[in-house]
Write a protein that binds this DNA or RNA. Structure first.
Length: 577
RNA sequence: GUCUCCGUAGCUCAGCUGGAUAGAGCACCGGUUUCCUAAACCGGGUGUCGCAGGUUCAAGUCCUGCCGGAGACGCCA
């Protein structure tokens, strides 16, 4: 249950009883927590938004809303402030209901039906199988995975997908390098020429191929071995990638590859579809602007009228030699996704793929007037150790692998840090900070709050042996005794979780979960410390069992929300540290 | 040249998709442990929210233009 949603419909009901003109537009009415808690528990802009339509002044309309609200049992007080905000406070029992709802829902609290019936495909990672996962892949992987979890929690029907290219020139290079490593495994002395993959990891692939096939592919023409070697290398590396991803808890529902798209006829179908729509023609493009191209010459090509759909230019689908240009398989792949019935397609890509959306969106629009394509671009990650940048160089094969990151700092910290900032910003990942046990480390800070909650619950059993503190007893407790500002401050933070889930899902900004959890942790640590000075603000009070029980319920709710948030982020909550 | 994103405190960044007096952390100064984890908390902020217009009851948030930064723009993948 989202209390803000609940009170929004209450406000709507109230508005209905005020004798306002028919057919008013309530869509801009919001019910939110005010920025400053001293204003009240909730605030609505209804009076200001509707004043003009209703032909009343905002404060007058606000007063009318207040009167009606006050008549309700769950509203303690209501007043008009500033230009016409209606601020109101909930009764203690209304807040008690929120806590009880959290306890009853468990970590399912925060779920929403916002995306009910909407099919979403989130494509992320999608690294080509040419090597192990490394630091450069991790951020997009985590963002995609958490976005998937987030949207699932917001009620969307989510498919997690991985697309890889196993048919281009890049993969042929992989096959040739693998063949060299294979010969090496059989005792030849080899050298990896410029332009091939220098990484040591291909030795394993070569060894493995030698184990399976012996000298079967030695001394043969490339034409004979390239297909089987390519397939072998791709299969091997995809399995390695899956293992790497599993280390940070990422598992895709669907893997799709380019070869499949070509071989099962999807590519041909999608091209025919574009032809049928009259979007294919033979023509000549003007030279690309803003870039010197000495070798450019006009030539007639098979073009897609992508400019009909907002692209800045039409795009060639075939090269001058008649083979498919690289975007054609991608277009076909999106055609396939549209046909699988997705309403929303989301791709998580690095910022260096900047032009991708502009090129792919026209195709999606051509295939469907319903499906919507979004791309989340993530900025680069700078890897630091002790504040010093660590160089990432793919060429030399000297790169930080995902495996190393997880081994050094743990999966939870890797995931949490990757969500520390808005996706498109640059991000620093400091190995030293990620393992630091201090407030400076957000993972630690949030985990510590969760562990402290459980510590309280454990201690309560000993300190209050004759009190039933089982989950059942907590749910049944009289929670209306939670009425100090400090208690309610915690409840208010917890009540926000469903809003955060919805807003973050809609904005496609998984990092908001991380920001929110830090708020929750701060609120908890703060309350905790107050108990040191003021005995009446402790959780466990042998002299006041009813309040203790209610406070324990609050602590349980706190732990639940943190666990729920960490769950969305794919981080395992710890109960002790 | 065109397009996208960014510009908020000394530093790193949030800012709930238009709300009230713009917030955290770091750094700096000071305080808090006979007591549920001090791995924490509390107090200390004179910010042209890049600049200039516009939209509105209300703009850091939306629109236009400019300045500054990053990235993307080939029949390459």
């Amino acid at each position: 249950m989202n209390v803000f949603q609940a009170y929004k419909s209450k406000i709507t009901d109230v508005l209905g009883t005020l004798g306002l003109p028919d057919g008013m537009d309530f869509s801009r009415v919001t019910v939110e927590p005010p920025r400053d808690a001293s204003h009240g528990d909730m605030a609505t802009n209804a009076a200001m938004v509707l004043a003009k339509q209703a032909g009343q002044n905002p404060r007058q309309l606000g007063e009318a809303i207040c009167e009606k609200l006050k008549a309700s049992n769950d509203v303690k007080e209501a007043s008009v402030a500033g230009p016409g905000f209606v601020n109101f406070r909930l009764s203690d029992s209304a807040w008690a209901d929120v806590v009880r709802d959290i306890l009853q829902s468990g970590t399912a609290y925060g779920q929403s039906d916002l995306g009910k019936g909407i099919k979403v495909n989130i494509e992320y990672v999608s690294a080509n199988p040419t090597g192990p996962m490394h630091a450069g892949h991790v951020r997009g992987a985590v963002i995609g995975d958490v976005l998937a979890g987030l949207m699932a929690k917001a009620g969307y029907d989510v498919t997690r997908e991985y697309y890889f290219n196993d048919a281009g020139a890049q993969v042929d290079v992989l096959a040739r390098t693998t063949h060299l490593r294979y010969r090496e495994a059989l005792g030849e002395s080899i050298e990896i020429p410029e332009g091939m993959y220098p990484g040591e990891y291909l030795k394993d692939v070569g060894n493995s191929l030698a184990d399976r096939d012996g000298d079967k592919w030695v001394g043969k023409d490339e034409a004979e071995w390239i297909d089987p070697v390519r397939t072998f290398a791709v299969d091997y590396l995809i399995e390695e990638i899956k293992k790497d991803l599993a280390l940070i808890g990422i598992k895709h529902d669907v893997f799709t590859n380019e070869r499949e798209i070509v071989e099962n006829g999807t590519l041909a179908d999608s091209f025919k579809k574009l032809e049928d729509l009259g979007l294919i023609y033979q023509g000549t493009l003007p030279p690309p602007k803003g870039k010197e191209m000495s070798d450019w010459e006009p030539v007639e090509l098979t073009l897609f009228r992508s400019s009909n759909f907002g692209d800045s230019t039409d795009r060639p689908l075939k090269k001058r030699d008649g083979t498919w240009a690289y975007i054609m398989p991608d277009i076909a792949y999106h055609y396939d996704k549209v046909h699988r019935g997705f309403d929303i397609l989301i791709n998580c890509l690095g910022k260096d793929h900047g032009g991708y959306l502009e090129r792919m969106r026209p195709a999606v629009k051509a295939f469907s007037n319903k499906a919507q394509l979004d791309v989340i671009f993530n900025g680069i990650v700078k890897i630091l150790k002790n504040g010093e940048p660590v160089k990432l160089s793919k060429r030399s094969g000297n790169l930080i692998t995902l495996r190393e990151m997880v081994e050094e700092v743990g999966a939870g910290a890797v995931r949490f840090f990757m969500l520390a900032r808005t996706p498109d910003s640059e991000l620093e990942f400091d190995f030293t900070k990620a393992v630091e046990q201090s407030k400076d480390n957000p993972v630690f800070y949030v985990q510590y709050a969760h562990a402290r909650c459980h510590s309280v619950l454990r201690n309560a059993k000993e300190a209050l042996p004759d009190l039933d503190t089982s989950e059942k007893a907590l749910v049944a407790a009289d929670l209306s005794v939670l009425k100090t500002d400090d208690d309610l401050a915690l409840v208010r933070v917890l009540a926000n979780w469903p809003r955060v889930v919805e807003a973050a899902a809609e904005a496609r900004e998984p990092h908001r979960i991380s920001t929110y959890l830090q708020e929750v942790a701060a609120a908890f640590h703060s309350f905790w410390s107050k108990g040191r000075d003021d005995d009446s603000l402790r959780f466990i009070m042998p002299d006041n069992k009813p309040l203790s029980l209610a406070r324990l319920a609050l602590v349980q709710a706190m732990a639940t929300v943190i666990a729920s948030g960490l769950g969305v982020m794919g981080v395992e909550p710890v109960e002790e540290m």
